[in-house]
Design a protein around this nucleic acid. Structure first.
Lengths: 212, 212
DNA sequence: TCTATACGATACTGTGGAGTTCCGGATCTT
DNA sequence: AAGATCCGGAACTCCACAGTATCGTATAGA
């Protein structure tokens, strides 16, 4: 259970013992998933990508479905740690500070995975939950935290619908990627912040100017 | 082109001539699509549902993909006619008036189809466009129209980000259906209107009270 | 060095479904 | 009435892929 224990050392050829190859296999599965989608993905692809034998996959997971569910669930990781969120003093500053190239890249890959997994989602509630937990909720939780802090410091008046508002960004980004097939870039995110989120919270984009 | 012209009369057994059976087949395809998704859907299912022969489908569409694209595209219909939108005098009144059981039902089916089509969407841009045009844009256009009218009548200050705001409802509803798997019911829509849309436009839910 | 174990590679099987072909019957045309 | 046309039904082919079984090899332990 503890990840520290060196249960299996690497060997000359890079192979490992026990089920230590699981991470590589799951990572390979996620890559293939993002590239080809669930239906286009074959077990052989995953095995080849992970430089593993197909039999090895079936020794560990009973079916393709289980493998995919596991792979998606394992994305949750230490994703967005609240203690590591920006703290600029203003809500807009915090929200904008969260837009980093690295963050956008991650989000794009997440959305590709979400797209690839969509077909299966309608028939597999477990997967829907796994995807939601791993791909969307972390970001929503971060938004919730930032908004709540803005309320606590008096920047935003309480009583707003946090539950709905913290989902605006993830939901709109999902829609933009999956259906509109447009990039979720910095400009788009800024326009969401300034055009939807902040106005809904009674704030304006510019700090002082009531311009326009 | 004109739908009035009785290009082919019904015969004893309910069969028709030419390609007049297309509508039934497309409708059957949409049903199966909503129920089983693109991957679960087989041509035989569609043929059986439409009481048609599989060969008949292939006489008309070269492949399963083309059939699905066509079916989705044909949903656009006279969906939300601007001249038939509610006009209650207030934006909130209009938005709430658009929530009708019939409308929700439609939206649910649309979302099921969207879910069923998702897997294919990532690999087929044409289908993404068709789905967007038929399932999302009509609603966004209605929202845009209502908001613009509110601006014109002075209820809402111009300069708001209409493009983003009119997509909030469809995007959030899509997310809620596809990933959260929760129902898009009246309460949810109202909370979106009062918790996101109207606040973002500088309006409050209550008509007069500046409470809180 | 010898044995046991886990793995990678590969060949194999089984099956579901896309797409094709054929036929018999019903309708329309003249 | 007799061809011509279209359709529904069903049988068929073909293939991709899930899942299995086998074998050679490399590692770990003794």
């Amino acid at each position: 259970m503890t990840q520290v224990e060196p249960a299996a050392a690497e060997t000359k050829l890079g192979r490992k013992r026990d089920h230590t190859r699981d991470p590589e296999i799951l990572a390979a599965a996620l890559e293939v998933l993002a590239e080809t989608g669930f239906d286009g993905m074959t077990i052989d692809m995953v095995a080849a990508r992970a430089k593993a034998g197909k039999a090895t996959l079936y020794r560990r997971w009973p079916s393709k479905n289980e493998l995919v569910i596991d792979a998606v669930a394992c994305m949750k990781q230490a994703d967005l740690d609240q203690s590591r969120l920006p703290d600029t003093g203003t809500l807009r500053g915090d929200l904008v500070a969260m837009i980093k190239p690295r963050s956008i890249e991650d989000a794009v890959k997440k959305m590709q995975i979400m797209a690839g997994v969509m077909s299966m989602i309608s028939a597999t509630p477990e997967l829907a939950d796994a995807a939601n937990e791993a791909l969307i909720k972390p970001r929503a939780a971060a938004n919730r935290f930032l908004i709540q802090r803005a309320i606590d410091r008096g920047e935003v008046t309480p009583g707003c619908d946090i539950d709905a508002l913290c989902l605006v960004t993830p939901a709109m980004a999902t829609y933009r990627t999956l259906i509109e097939r447009k990039p979720v870039d910095r400009d788009f995110l800024i326009s969401l912040i300034d055009g939807v989120l902040l106005p809904a919270l009674g704030l304006r984009a510019g700090d002082s100017p009531g311009a326009r």
